[in-house]
Design a protein around this nucleic acid. Sequence first.
DNA 1: CATCCTTTGAAGGAA
DNA 2: TTCCTTCAAAGGATG
Length: 445
Amino acid sequence: MPQLSSGGGDDLGANDEMIAFKDEGEQEEKIQENAFTERDLADLKSSLVNESEINQSPSAAAVRRAQQQQGEQRGFAEKHREHLDGVSKHQDGGMYKTPTYPGYPFLMLPDPYLPNSSVSPSSNKVSVVQQSHGMHPLTSLLPYSNEHFSPSPPHLPTDMSQKTGVHRHQSQDLSGYYSLPPGGVGQITPSMGWQSQPVYPGLSPCGFRQPYSSNLSSATSYSRFPHSLMLGPSGMHPTGIPHPAIVPPTGKQDHDQYDRSMYVKPQEVKREKEPKKPVIKKPLNAFMLYMKEMRAKVIAECTLKESAAINQILGRRWHALTREEQAKYYELARKERQLHMQLYPTWSARDNYEAGLSGVAGEKSKADWGKKKRRKREKLQDSNTDPGSPKKCRARFGLNQQTDWCGPCRWVPNIHPPTTSPPTRSIAPRSSFLLPSVHQCITSP
DNA sequence: CATCCTTTGAAGGAA
DNA sequence: TTCCTTCAAAGGATG
C-alpha cells in the first residue's frame, strides 16, 4: 500500500513525491550536465504541444482506425460469447468470491475520462481491462467497474452482458470485494481525478502530461492487440493474463490450451504439433500495462514505430503521470499478479529464466542464454557511466544516503517501488539521452 | 533468423 | 537488507 500521509490535507503533495512526477530532477541534471539536452527537453515539450494541437483535429486515419476497431470489437465479442459463459460460470464458482483485497483508496475513483459515467469505449485508462470482454475476472476487482459501461457502448453488442450474464454482478459485487468505507466513493473528491492535478498543464501529449484523448485511445486500445489475442478462442485478457474461465477448475487440458493461445508466441502456433511445454509468462507490471495501452497512441502521435523510441517516450510520460494516474496501473498490476498467482500457484518467474522465453519459448538453449547473460554483464562493465546503484551513486558524489537525491545519475534515495501503488519516491528516467527517432519526433511536430 | 534496443517494475537469488 | 539479473511488451534495426 502506498505510504500515504495520514496527516490530512493534500498528501499528494508530499515533498518526496514531487521529484518523480515533475521530472524536475531530470531537468536540473540536464542543466548541470548538458545544456543541449536540457534544451531538447524544452523542445520536446513545446513540440509536443504542437503535435498535440495538430493531432487534435481528428484525422481521417484516426476515424478509420476507430471504426475498424469497433468492427473488431464486435467480432471479438461475438466470438467470445461461449467463453463468456464459461467465465461467468467459473466466477460464480467462487474463485474470486473471496474478498481478497482490502479496501483500496483508488478503487472507486470516478473515471474522469468517463464524463457523466458515459463510457467511452476508448476510455483509455486501462482499457486493457475494461474492454469489451469486460469479462476479465479482474474487471470485477478493478476500479474500472462496468458501471461505466452501462449502457453498453455503442460499439459493443448490447446484448453482450445480457446474454452472457458476465457483467451482471460485477458492479454490485464490488463492495463485496473491497471493504469500502461507507460513502467511500462519494467522498473521493474531484481533486482526486486524474486531470485535476496536471503536472504539466498545457503540455502536449507526446511526452508529458496530457489529457488523454478518448478518441485516440479508443483507436489504440484495441488495435494494439495482435489478432491471436483479440480474436483467438481463448478469451484472453488483453493484458496477457489468462482468463480463469478458460481454465476449468480441475482440467489441465484446457489450461494448456489457454496457455498456448495466450502466451505462446505466434511462431509456436505453426509448430503446435510438436509437444511444447506451455509457457506461462510473467504478469505485466504497472508500466507494462501502461505501455500496452498507450503505445498505439504514441505511435499515432509521433508517427513512430520503433519500439525502443516509443518506450523512451512512454517512460517519460510515465514519470509525468500524476500519482493517481499511476495508481490505477499499479492497482491493475497488483491484481494481475494476484490472479496470476491464483491461476498458476506453482509458477515462478524463475521458470522463464533459462528458457529464454523472450524469444521463442523453449527454443533457446541454455548456452544462448548464457551468452546473452554474459553480453549483458560485459556491457554493464563497459559502462563506466552507470552509477550501478543509488547507494554507489550517492557514495560517489558524497551525498547523504538517506535523504539526498542523486542528481548526477538520477537516482533517488530508498528506491522501492511499491507493489500496489505509485512509488512515494519514484525513480527518475533511466535514459540519459534520446534516441534519434525520439528526438526527431519531439523536435519536429 | 536471432538478437538488440528501450522503458519500468516485479521477482528471485546472491552477497 | 541490499544489490544484481532476468523477464514482461513491442517492432524496427541490425548482424
